[in-house]
Structure formats: C-alpha cells, structure tokens
Design a protein around this nucleic acid. Structure first.
Length: 755
RNA sequence: UCCGGCGUCGUCUAAUGGCAGGACAGCGGAUUUUGAUUCCGCUUAUCGGGGUUCGAAUCCCUGCGCCGGAACCA
C-alpha cells in the first residue's frame, strides 16, 4: 500500500504494462500483490531502491499490496542487524508494508511438508553424491549431465532418508534432497537441482529447530505462492531460474501460481554496487562503515544528506527495462540538487578562509538583513548577518593576476559581498614565503545590502563571514568514491586501486553565527558552494557538516580543458565483407530443392514445424513468402501450437491476393480472422466485406477528409518531413475501412500533396 | 561452445507496422545580489547485411557484439 502521495508518477514500463494487462484480463481476480524479498545478509543500496520503488509503486498504482519478506534460508550469513537495517531503510524511503511483513523462515514447516509431498509424488530424491561428484554428474553448459546413481531410489527410501536428514542423522554435505527433473536439460538449473541441504547451524530466528534448510529456487517461489503474490519481480540474473520456479510451483501442486518477471538491475557510474564489493570496502576500512556518505547504500545516502524524495525521483527517471545499463551518476546528482534547491535555506560559509581587512571601517559591526531564499523560490524568512572591519572570504575568490573573465576579487578590482557591501582591493599582504595572508580593502558605504554603485552594472558577488563572529566548524567534503567511470572494468587493475583518495576531504571552516542553533539533520545551502547537512557526529556546539553535493560550477567548467569528444563507434570496418552465413541444415536444403525457395525462407520454414505442416498441406511454393513473413509472425506473437486451418486455405487466400480481390494488408486481416476460427478466406471476405477497392473517387474523397483533419501533419510534410506521408497513407487507408489499394493511395496522396 | 536475454543520441529511456520523442550530460544565449537556480535554443541515435510491405527501430532470415546461466548462495 503505500507509496506516499508525493511519489513521482511513474512513466509506464513493460512490467506495469503487463500488470495492467493482467488486471484488465481479470487474471488473479484482478488482484495485484508484489513483494520485496531481500536476504538479511547485507545493507540495502540504491539498486534495491529501484526494486523497492518498482514493487511498492506498482502495488500502490494498482490498488494492491506489497509485502516485505526476508528471504532468510541460509542460517550462516543472516543476522537480525540486517533485518533491522532493511526495515529502517524501506521505511525511510517512504514505503509502508503495513501488516505484510514476512519471513521465509516462518514457512519452514510448510516447505518441509511440500518436500515430502514431492518425494511421495516421485518428483524428488535424496542424493548421496558428494559436492564434487554432483558437479561432475551435472555436465557442462554444452554437454548434458548424467543421472545420479541415487536417482531411482524408492519413495519409501527417499522419505526415510529425508526424515533422517531432518533428524540430524547425517553430517553436512553427506546428502541433499534433489528435484527430479532432467539431467539433459539445456538449462543447467533444471538438471536435478538440490532443494534442501544439511546445515548444522543456528538460525537467527528458528534457533536449532532445523538442521536442514531449503534452497532459494525451492523456497522463493513457494513463499510467493503462500503469500498469494501475483507478480514476482526480480532482476535479470534470475531469468534462467524462471523455468525452475514454474516447475516447483507446478510439481508441488500448490493452489496459487505466481509469475516471475525480470528487469535489469541498476548500475551507477563511479561506484560499485555488488554486496561483495561493498562488504570489502566496509571490512577493509576503505570507508567508515555501511553508512559512509560515499557509499551507494541507503544508509550512506541518508547520512550523506540526500532526501528520499530525490531517490524516488531518480528511480522514476531511470525507468525499467531489460537492457544492461549503467546510469550516469550525474542524473542522481541532478535529482539531489533539484530536490534540495527548494528545501535548503541559504547561508554563508567560508571553507578556506583568507583575511580581508576593511580599512575604512570605523564603526561597530553592522547587522545586515539576509533572506534565506533567492528570488525565484517562493519562501519567506531571513536572518541577521554581522559585518565588521575584519572579514574572511574563500581563497578561491581572490587572484593576484586574474584572467579577464574572473569576476571576483583582485588587486584594484571591486566585488560585491553577498548581502553586504561592495569592496575594492587596494593592497595584498604576503608572508615571507610569498603566500597571500591578507587583503586590505575599502568598502563603499553607499552599497549597503549589495546595491550596485552607479555605473557598475556587471559586478561579481562572493560569499564571506565576519571573522570575529563566525563559528568554527568541521566540514566533510564528499565526492565520488571512485575516480573512474566503471570501477573494475579494466583488466589487470584492482578495482580498489581506482578509489579516489580525494573522495573525502575534511576542513575546518567558518560559518555565519546563525548556524549556532542548527540541529542534526538540518540542511543548508552554503551559497556558491553546495548543499550541506548537520551530521550526527555533531557534539553540542561542535558542529560537523557533510557536503551533500556541490553546486554546479560554470566557472570551473570554463577553466577545464575540453574533453576530447568520445565519438564514433569503433565498429564499422567489420561490415566490409559479409561474414560466412550458417550452412543450411539438411532439412532446409531439402525444402530448398523441393520448393525452389530461397535459403532464408528454407531456414525459417525448417525452424517451425507448424509452418512446415502448413506448407506440406498447401503443396505450393507460392504461399512461402506469406507463410514465412506473416503466418510466422502471428504464431510467434500468439504463441500458437496449432491453427484451425490447413495449407489449402492459405492457397485460397493467396489466390485472392493474386486476382486482386485482396491487398497484402487485407490478407493479413483475413489471416487473423482465420486464426480466430472464422472460416475460410472466401467466407471471411464475404462476411466482412473486405474486398479491396481501386475506386479512385472514393479513395480521393477519403484522402481529402484525412488531409483536412490533419492540417498540421500536412504542414510538416510541406516543410520537408517526408516521413509524414507514411502516417497519412495509413490514415487514408483506415478511412476507407482498410479496403483501399495501398499503392494507389500512395500515388494519389503524393499527387494531392504536390498539387 | 550449449541454453536464455539484450542491442535506439555520450548515458538512461519512449515510440507495440505510419511524423524516431523525453530526461541527464554537452554546447550557445537571456535573466540573476549564488559563475547556482530559472527560461530559451542547438548538436547527437535505431549494431551490420539481406528479405516481407505502399510504408520497418518494430515482422522474417542472417552475421556481429554485450550480459546471464555449470554454489549444498540469493
């Protein structure tokens, strides 16, 4: 239930399309139930967030439910600490599973009963092969496996041994329960996969009740079934497990049959996402913990200061598809800035202070009014900012001999201090080593509040604080964890060596005094610098702030030498000579010579038995193009195993095309009707009045109606978009009830548009 | 190599036989007391080769490339 209202409306995707179609078809009684099924053996990361948003999002959109289920079937890796962190993270992301919190470990009894049932039905057996033997018997991806010598044990013996497994009479690894499927299956997952193994281990929830534990492929689908899940959504690496998923559900004869759908997992540039690598970073102390703000973990993102709104928006924007994809982290960063722009009040802070003395300041400190929000954000509020004779600015905002486009402070130049006065630099003080230690400037009293002096239109603005008033704080500047786009993608290079040593810089910074009351978790924008959050390491008045994300820096970009354009696919030359094509099979060769057809046609025919039988009953090569191009499409897309007509009907159809009764397009419509069982081609033509027309008057009239109704498209055509003619042709044909001769429509249309 | 999946702007993703669209990134301009934001504009793509069709990113054949699958992990 559950997604909060402010969740961005998700654009549709192939999974939502499927759910929508299932609901419309009344599948599962129109019910929608999804689940997010993490194993509690690690922390959630932004890749999980994608799955969470998908599963909870779909449930919310279709009035269904989304369960949170711990897939805890491996006692040796799981831990309640992870359960707690997962619950916290899902909740923090803004989702609510309500009553629907489940644990696979709660199903151990039911799973065990079904395993006994499988044995009783002769669909599972206890196998005593060792692990190495089993893998040897399994064969390889290109060679079939061999049956285990224990495969034909009697039901009684299997039942007895399985019960003894449960009682703890065997050592770990001594035997397993296997599904009895097919050792020769091309899908390795189907070669009698183990479904129960012995583990004399303490489970964090069931304690020492069990010493056998079900494996994923067995437990997961049944858990889905127990929970009456309708759409079991998972990532692509489980694709070959789907066949087994379906087998288990069917073989155990459970009443509820969920269906699995896979989508591509999220990869992000400049970071790593695998549990193994994340664990290695944490355990190897490359980061400070699971919540290190540089990590893509939910805990890390939260500590970094990113709001769940930004993550949800990001997940909505990346979409859901099956392509292997690596999303540019710049998109995440964009979502973070976009979210914080309207949420973080602006304040002044200096990260790398340089002293500025205002030589003509001869009074008490001034109290300036400073709005918290810029003009384009409709929010109220301001604070006082003290201005005095001794200020601090960021070192970056001064250059002794600046280029022309540097609109900041330099000897003899003026700059506006944000919310303050315009100052002019008169003198640069340096230490013995030649480093600048102080700037001596004068202020213009007429410019209080930042008003531009007469005649000075273009004036840079920089941030500053008053030295005597500013707070001394710790600021942690976080950046991308890795310095390369795809860590680990270069052969022979350890991915850990690609960590960016500068992903964290800690500085002592000075911030305006209003931050004295800032609370942990509060976010600010330090003007011109970035977004910051008060970190939980803050102790009393000793503020610690994390940089969430830097502001975009147009000037820095100007300075950077342009990256050479990475362009041009390094693919072209291969296209020169056509690669050797696959030799024709014996069957195809025979077809080719019998019917005098092309290689391509023979191949397509040989691939599809249904097509072959149609051709045989037709006995004429004339129907081959239609068979290969149209009939094949229909039977593939509708997954047909048979059709309610034979080849003679196709010959009849072909004759109708030949004598001009039907256009090719109409023939396709007739074919669809034939598949729907509406009778012979001639009957369908008569019944539906599908006869093709070449009546120019009628066609012209239709074209005129279409052109009148689509003036904009006509304009685009005349403006040079030739492709529009396709759409207009289609529309015109449709206008005649699909009966117009397409070629004629095209000719007339072209003539009409030209004239 | 066997089975399966996937190939659309630099990146992610739409277009379900009929005008290749959007977002991010990039580039240019306007506005700006944040070189931010906002606004406007621009560049850039259907993996190659054949076929079917009036019309193909989409259907068929084929080549190529990438990913996943041989845990008693999930």
């Amino acid at each position: 239930m559950s997604a909060p209202i402010e969740t961005p409306p998700a654009a549709s995707d192939f999974i939502r399309d499927k759910v929508r179609a299932d609901v419309a078809a009344g599948k599962y009684g129109g019910r929608v139930a999804t689940r997010f099924p993490p194993e509690p053996n690690g922390y959630l990361h932004i890749g999980h967030a994608k799955s969470i948003c998908l599963n909870f999002g779909i449930a919310a959109e279709f009035g269904g439910v989304c369960h949170l289920r711990m897939d805890d079937t491996n006692p040796t890796t799981e831990d309640p600490e992870y359960v707690a962190s997962i619950q916290r993270d899902v909740k923090w992301l803004g989702f609510d599973w309500g009553e629907n919190m489940f644990f696979a470990s709660d199903y151990y009894d039911a799973l065990y009963e079904l395993a006994e049932k499988l044995i009783t039905l002769g669909r599972a057996y206890v196998c005593d092969l060792t692990e190495e033997q089993m893998s040897e018997y399994r064969g390889t991806i290109s060679e079939p496996g061999r049956d285990s010598p224990f495969r034909e044990r009697s039901v009684e013996e299997n039942l007895d041994r399985f019960r003894r497994m449960r009682k703890g009479e065997f050592k770990e690894g001594e035997c397993v329960l296997r599904a009895k499927i097919d050792m020769a299956s091309p899908n390795m997952k189907m070669r009698d996969p183990p479904i129960y193994r012995i583990k004399h281990a303490h489970h964090y929830r069931t304690g020492d009740t069990w010493c056998i534990y079900p494996l994923y492929d067995y437990a997961h689908c049944l858990s889905d079934s127990f929970e009456r899940i309708t759409h079991s959504i998972c990532t692509m690496e489980f694709e070959s497990a789907r066949e087994l998923y379906d087998w288990v559900v069917e073989a155990t004869e459970v009443p509820w049959v969920p269906k699995q759908t896979e989508f591509a997992r999220l990869n992000l540039s400049y970071t790593v996402m695998s549990k193994r690598k994340l664990l290695e970073l944490v355990e190897g102390k490359h980061v400070s913990g699971w919540d290190d703000p540089r990590l893509p973990t939910i805990a890390g993102l939260r500590r970094r200061g990113i709001r769940p709104e930004a993550i949800r928006e990001f997940c909505a924007r990346i979409g859901v598809a099956k392509n292997l994809s690596t999303v540019d982290v710049a998109l995440l960063e964009h979502c973070i800035r976009e979210d914080l722009n309207a949420e973080a009040p602006r304040v002044l802070a200096v990260l790398d202070p340089l002293k500025v003395t205002i030589t003509n300041w001869d009074r008490e400190p001034d109290e300036l009014d400073a709005a918290y929000w810029p003009h384009d954000i409709p929010r109220e509020g301001s604070r006082k900012v003290p201005f005095s004779g001794e200020l601090l600015i960021d070192r970056e905002d001064f250059m002794e001999s600046p280029p022309k486009d540097f609109h900041r402070l330099a000897p003899g130049r003026a700059v506006r201090l944000r919310h303050g006065y315009v100052i002019t630099c008169n003198e640069v003080i340096k230490d013995a080593a030649g480093a600048v230690t102080e700037l001596r400037c004068t202020y213009d009293p007429e410019t209080r509040g930042g008003a531009a002096p007469a005649g000075q239109k273009k004036l840079g603005t920089i941030h500053w604080v008053s030295a005597a008033h500013a707070l001394d704080v710790e600021v942690r500047l976080y950046d991308r964890l890795f310095s390369v786009e795809q860590p680990g993608s270069t052969e022979g290079v350890d991915w850990k060596s690609e960590l960016d040593p500068q992903s964290l810089t800690v500085v002592r910074a000075r911030v305006e005094p209003s931050l004295a009351s800032a609370k942990v978790g509060e976010r600010f924008q330090f003007e011109r610098l970035g977004f910051f959050i008060v970190d939980e390491d803050t102790r009393g008045r000793a503020l610690v702030l994390n940089r969430v994300i830097a502001l975009k820096d147009g000037y820095a970009k100007l300075q950077k030498p342009k990256e050479p354009e990475k362009r041009a696919r390094p693919q072209a030359p291969a296209a020169e000579k056509p690669a050797a094509e696959k030799a024709l099979s014996r069957e195809a060769l025979a077809l080719k010579s019998t019917y005098g057809i092309t290689d391509d046609e023979a191949r397509a025919l040989a691939n599809e038995p249904l097509l072959l039988s149609l051709l045989e009953s037709a006995g004429r090569s004339e129907v081959v193009p239609f068979l290969v191009n149209e009939v094949l499409r229909e039977i593939r897309s509708k997954e047909l195993a048979s059709v309610p007509f034979d080849g003679t009907a196709l010959v009849e159809l072909q004759l109708l095309v030949n004598d001009g009764t039907l256009s090719n397009k109409l023939a396709k419509d007739v074919l669809a009707a034939m598949i729907a069982g509406e009778g012979s081609p001639r009957e369908i033509v008569d019944k539906r009045g599908l006869k093709q027309t070449t009546d120019e008057g009628a066609i012209l009239a239709a074209i005129e109606r279409v052109l009148a109704a689509n003036a904009d498209a006509v304009a685009r055509y005349r403006a040079g978009n030739q492709n529009v003619i396709g759409a207009l042709t289609g529309l015109s044909i449709k206008e005649t009830g699909g009966r117009a001769n397409p070629k004629l429509v095209g000719e007339l249309l072209r003539k009409k548009l030209a004239g």
